[in-house]
Amino acid sequence: MRHKTTMNYYLKHILFFCLAILLISCKEQYKLTNSKSGNNEINNELSTNNFLETIILPYRIELDLKMNEVINTSLIDMEVGSPEGLLGNFVCDLIHIKAKEISDKPVDFCLLNNGGLRTPLPKGEITRGKIFELMPFENEIVIVEISGKNMLDLIEYIKIKSVIMNSRKAGVPVSGLRMIINDDKVSDVKIANFAFDANKNYRVVTSDYLANGGDHMDFFLNPISIENTGMKLRDAILAHIINLNHEEIELNATLDGRIYYAE
């Protein structure tokens, strides 16, 4: 029994000692005192990283091969324009066709934005990479049903954009919609070959970006319905161009006065 008491005595002391040590060490701590910040620009004064380059290389070779693949030939130079442009007509026409294929319901017309067509298509060979340049975004094709009242805003929007001069973003590319702009008046609005009816709803194919009010296209907000196709604009463009190539049809587009200034 005596032994046991001694042990208890030791234990108490040992535990006390441990506790004291722990307390002392707890008192010591790292404290944040200061900070300094400066972000670094990544410019061409920096070299690429050799080891990383060895990892990238096989991917880059495969990528270049794919991107440099010629997928068709264009007969003409296509650029955006206002009130209409060859590039806008080309892309809108093909997206309109695609939407009609995808959807079970009719698609009245197509409306996109010139700001989203990022590079002209040159006359001659068209590579896959060129289409990635034209449409680098991952925007998807959506079909929006809007009221006749919102259609009036849409028509007004096209008019305002079409009379802007000297801007790359002037004009609104469309397909399946025609109108005449005379000074400040819009006339002869035709949709899918029928005269526009403000009491009717219309189904418009566009990009999800614009459908969400991008480029201040507020007339797309609060739509009657919206159909997500899940198809990317770029994929649709690529598929169309590759398809034409299979049919041995080269790329072409015309100006047909769909949006027309009457002088």
């Binding site: 008192k27 010591e28 701590q29 790292y30 404290k31 944040l32 005192t33 200061n34 900070s35 300094k36 910040s37 400066g38 972000n39 670094n40 620009e41 990544i42």
Partner: peptide, 29 residues
């Protein structure tokens, strides 16, 4: 761009709330 923030820590026996005594911060700090 590569963002950068450097933090400086001091080993201290007790909590010091006024840190100006140990470091003199410049405007950027």
């Amino acid at each position: 761009s590569l963002g950068r923030v450097d933090f400086y820590f001091n080993r201290e026996k007790e909590r010091i709330d006024d840190l100006n005594t140990s470091f003199r911060p410049s405007k950027n700090y």
